[in-house]
């Protein structure tokens, strides 16, 4: 127990010291990691804990970001109101889409979330008079919440986002360890058995869907105020797929794994962009390599390598929790 507290104290100290020690650019990357990480963690609630992989998660992130963008740039709503409005919009969208998606499970769930995500992207892309179409919405104001310190200083903004991230992560942590979180895992393992035990499994899946969308919305609201610009790529299927990649890279069904996955993607993208314009190509290759060699994430992949090096039998790779093992044919 003492060791665990020590670990958390080290993490907290590093998080607090970061913007003081590291250059601004790294602080920026860490902030992006937190924002995308929160979105990926919320997706993990569905993909990892409930066994429902949504391929349209960027829709809720984007709905919140666009709500913030539209309210602040076109209606001059103050940030303190636009911020929760973005989260509420994401929750409302997830509540509607969830009704359609959670009627299905497995591959049908996957394809329905995919299609709904693509439709939402289409709305952002084509509804130019409201969303700015292809040009997006520039000129979103900074996140002034009426706090005594100004958030136009990037260091102050870092601490504000850090606090919001930690609160959200704590809530998610409590959620996955609550009886509700345990029933989600039960549904992932065997929905039929849970239903037999008297659980309303549909309601559990639906609530998980809406909660995941809401937390993605929180990340989206933060993103809009941090980036101060939203555009259709923010809710493209590529963004949804990146969120799934973050979950898998970090390890599905672990709360902080997706944060690590987000860090890998954010840092890799910035590293690659320094040398070449072919990020999409590299990202595609990362997808293929991950599926082929690290379906259980970097930790799982490293463990498999280690076991092979030690000459032990390698446990067969599994395509995410609750799924059938990957069979060689």
């Amino acid at each position: 127990m003492g060791l665990r507290w020590l670990g958390w104290a080290v993490v907290a100290a590093v998080a607090l010291a970061l913007p003081q020690v590291l250059p601004l650019y790294f602080t920026h990357l860490v902030l992006l990691t937190m924002i995308y990480g929160l979105s990926a963690m919320s997706l993990d609630l569905l993909a990892g804990y409930t066994g429902l992989t949504s391929f349209g998660h960027a829709a809720y992130f984007g709905a919140a970001a666009y709500t913030v963008g539209i309210l602040t740039t076109q209606h001059r709503v103050p940030p303190a109101l636009a911020f929760p409005a973005g989260v509420a919009a994401a929750a409302a969208l997830a509540a509607v889409y969830g009704l359609l998606a959670t009627r299905a499970v497995g591959v049908y769930f996957l394809i329905i979330t995919l299609a709904l995500g693509m439709g939402t992207w289409g709305l952002a892309y084509r509804w130019s008079s409201v969303t700015g179409g292809d040009n997006g919405l520039p000129g979103i104001p900074p996140l002034e919440l009426g706090l005594p310190w100004s958030t136009s200083d990037p260091k102050h903004l870092y601490y504000l986002i850090l606090v919001i991230f930690c609160l959200a992560a704590f809530l998610l942590y409590r959620l996955v360890r609550s009886p509700f979180g345990l029933s989600l895992r039960g549904i992932r393992e065997s929905e039929g058995r849970m239903r037999m035990l008297g659980y309303n499994t549909w309601l559990h899946r639906y609530v998980a869907f809406v909660v995941a969308g809401t937390f993605a919305g929180l990340a989206g609201s933060l993103y809009a105020f941090y980036n101060r610009f939203v555009s259709p790529p923010d809710l493209h299927i590529a963004a949804s797929a990146e969120a799934v990649l973050m979950v898998i890279l970090g390890g599905a069904g672990t709360l902080f794994g997706p944060l690590v996955g987000a860090g890998i993607v954010v840092f890799l993208r910035n590293l690659v962009s320094a040398y070449t314009h072919r990020w999409m190509l590299i990202l595609g290759v990362v997808f293929v390599l991950t599926v082929m060699y690290a379906p259980q994430g970097v930790a799982g992949g490293a463990r498999a390598l280690w076991a092979r090096w030690r000459g032990r039998a390698v446990t067969p790779p599994v395509a995410g929790p609750g799924k059938e093992p990957v069979a060689e044919r």
């Binding site: 497995g106 591959v107 190509l281 997808f287």
Partner: peptide
């Protein structure tokens, strides 16, 4: 063909190819 019936793996794989 190496990922028969592993739908999530297949989607990620084809997604990667679509980017490429």
């Amino acid at each position: 063909s190496r990922f028969y019936r592993a739908e999530q793996a297949q989607v990620l794989l084809t997604m990667g190819f679509s980017f490429i």
